[in-house]
């Protein structure tokens, strides 16, 4: 029970701290308007090149929209502790740091879900995509699983912030690669095998596939397989994040490099 409280309350407090320096304008501009225009850009490009229909690009980019909040949020959740000089205090805590940091991913995943839902709604309304009402619960599930999986991916990247100084390079590169490798814009069949294989291990890939199936009128049971794989991918990233956090914490204590910027 105490661990659960640490996970949720700790995460919420850290998330609120983030909003001490950001603002509603920044939230709307960066996290709502930006992904919506990304969706429009690829949807129009897809129309021009006739690579896929509107559903392919709208649903794919809507699921990917959560990556912005999850990847940047995850890296900031840990990297900013170092930047603002509070990392030492967190690591001095007698509670489980794994629980503390895994809890950080949850609000970002929630945030990602909100952004994905907004982007999907906005994209569908602007481009006239009809989604069967019966598909909505399944799609909500796909967006939730994708956001959570991406949240843990962001946390694993954030863990690198304990070891490397420039977390912005890591997060910018990751977001760009997700655009290419998750199959939301380029069908995996069009990518070389090795690039498609990397995409299979990234969050969003399977959630986007499931959401597309559901938006196309498929039954939830048909989407369970990609959703299950997405859950496994997310769990693997969560374990990796916990491991990296542990290893880098021990290393930074040993090398006295905890607050080195």
């Amino acid at each position: 029970m105490r661990t659960l409280r640490l996970l949720t309350v700790g995460g919420v407090i850290a998330y609120r701290a983030l909003f001490n320096w950001t603002s509603p304008g920044m939230f709307v501009g960066t996290l709502l308007v930006g992904p919506l225009f990304q969706l429009l850009f690829f949807a129009y490009l897809g129309r021009e090149l006739q690579v896929g229909d509107d559903r392919f690009f709208i649903v794919g980019n809507a699921v990917l929209a959560s990556s912005l909040a999850c990847v940047f949020g995850g890296t900031m959740a840990i990297g900013n502790e170092r930047r603002f000089g509070t990392l030492g205090h967190v690591l001095l805590s007698p509670r489980s740091r794994t629980a503390v940091f895994l809890g950080r991913a949850l609000p970002y995943a929630g945030n990602g879900l909100l952004i994905a839902a907004f982007t999907l709604t906005g994209g569908a309304l602007l481009l006239g995509l009809r989604i069967p009402p019966g598909a909505l619960p399944g799609m909500a599930l796909a967006l939730t699983v994708g956001s959570l999986s991406c949240g843990f991916f962001g946390l694993a990247l954030g863990a690198l912030g304990l070891r490397f100084r420039d977390i912005w390079v890591i997060s910018n590169v990751s977001v760009a690669l997700m655009l290419l490798l998750t199959g939301v814009n380029v069908p995996p069949s069009a990518l070389p095998g090795w690039l498609a294989a990397i995409g299979q291990g990234l969050p969003i890939t399977h959630a986007a596939a499931a959401a597309r199936l559901l938006a196309g009128g498929a039954d939830l049971t048909e989407a369970l397989r990609p959703l299950g794989i997405e859950v496994l991918v997310g769990a693997a990233w969560a374990v990796l994040a916990a491991l990296l956090l542990k290893v880098f914490e021990v290393e930074s204590r040993r090398h006295a490099s905890l607050d080195t910027l």
Partner: peptide, 28 residues
């Protein structure tokens, strides 16, 4: 600046790769 070079070099390369595969898929 590592970040500037990432924005100026690496990300455009990823975007170019994406564009190449999209154009190829579209028969262009």
């Amino acid at each position: 600046s590592g970040l500037e070079l990432t924005i100026s070099l690496f990300i455009p390369i990823v975007q170019a790769t994406l564009a190449v595969y999209l154009f190829r898929s579209g028969g262009e």
